[in-house]
Design a protein around this nucleic acid. Structure first.
Lengths: 232, 232
DNA sequence: TTAGAATTAAAACATACGTTTGAATGAACT
DNA sequence: AGTTCATTCAAACGTATGTTTTAATTCTAA
């Protein structure tokens, strides 16, 4: 079994991971067959089952590797922000929390050299993947990171119910997912985006997310009081 | 061939549509087999190919039916808003445009009696569906409606570049998609939502969307001027 | 060089898929 | 009654799936 790539194996394991990642994005998890993967990777069909045991294990491995790195970057960014604020004796700002969470994904998504862009498109799709075992696995991988960021956001927004923060975080992940899945995955706006420069995507999205996060709280279902938002 | 359900056919066609819709949500398009559909509908395996020709045609029919109704409601709502504003001699407000577009989806999504809720979950997932023919079809079905709403939004937001509106609309659809896919589809926040009352989802989301839409414009990539947003 | 483990290769495994076929059914019309 | 025609049915079609098996090969270490 061995760890990364056995001994001197001609990187068969790594080639499978790369090929699988790219094909998962292009065709989805279910629609990507073992034969497509092995053919693209230029290895024998049996290699996947030999190195990973099963297709499910391969999928998990693809996600675990990249998602682990992504969440590590996020937590490191949050650490830096909290340390700096602590040293200055002030609280962390919501915008800083958002940036710590979403910037790493966007950086990864717009990094052409790294295979990151491919992965982030895959990840965005997978949040809503119907496949039960994939969702369960993803939730487990995310749990700790999500917990820390929700706490940080809650601390940075006094007076906002935790419930509301939870929902807005959910909405923000949705907006980010679409931002990353982007203009080539979603062709609804085909031919309408003049400017797809990924460098400009980050400020665009961050501005939108901040606006949404700091929007006036909605009136609670009971239709009594005055509307909370300025109505335009 | 006949239109709705032939002559006295025991609604075989309709039962297939209902079963397919529910199964597509639960397992995805590719992972839902003809045998699952026909077994759930209680009809013969060959019935799908007889009534719809192929699985692809069945998928298209499922989407066409509900999406047609949804977009009709959206356009009707926009008509009402524009007529009222025209009669009063004022412009349409951005919040009104948003409500005309997103409220019908949320109404449909939270309507338990109708099969609407099921469909909206399916639709939210399908925007990012890797399957090419589904995306193409969806884009075609959406084209006219989207065009009208983008125009209305552009007219209601003087001074905001059309490019920016396009992006923010994209982001808003992402947030809405997650809102609808909701807490049972996406288990990342499992056990953390205390309040899943769908009636409160609408004001929650609308408040968030409005905040995002009206956020200060991002600085354009050139790192010159002062930041446009109040930084917290 | 040789023994032994790790890896690759070709082939077959059983199962599931979407679709097609041809006969049986049953109501509507002449 | 007989005929027609849309629909349903059981069965099989060919193809593709993930996985397993067995043999050949490559590399490592003594």
């Amino acid at each position: 079994m061995s760890s990364a790539s056995g001994r001197g194996g001609p990187e068969t394991r790594g080639r499978i991971l790369d090929a699988a990642e790219a094909l998962f994005v292009e065709h989805g998890l279910e629609a990507t067959s073992m034969r497509m993967i092995t053919a693209t990777a230029g290895v024998n069909l049996a290699a996947v089952n030999y190195h990973f045991g099963s297709k499910e294990n391969l999928i998990q491995e693809v996600f675990r590797l990249r998602l682990g790195e992504l969440n590590q970057r996020r937590l490191a960014a949050l650490d830096r922000v909290e340390d700096a604020a602590g040293a200055a004796g002030v609280g962390v700002k919501p915008s800083q929390v958002l940036e710590a969470f979403f910037e790493p994904s966007l950086q990864m998504a717009t990094d052409e050299t790294h295979g990151g862009r491919i992965f982030m498109q895959l990840l965005g799709r997978t949040y809503t993947e119907p496949n039960a075992f994939v969702r369960k696995f993803l939730a487990a991988e995310y749990a700790d990171t999500l917990e820390r960021f929700l706490d940080a956001l809650y601390a940075s927004l006094p007076g906002v119910p935790r419930e509301e923060i939870l929902w807005r975080f959910h909405f923000m992940m949705g907006a980010t997912s679409y931002a990353i899945a982007g203009t080539d995955a979603l062709q609804l706006f085909a031919g309408k985006f003049d400017d797809e420069d990924p460098a400009r995507l980050i400020p665009r999205l961050m501005s939108f997310l901040l606006g949404g996060l700091r929007a006036p709280l909605p009136e609670l279902a009971s239709g009594a009081d005055a509307p909370a938002h300025a109505d335009d």
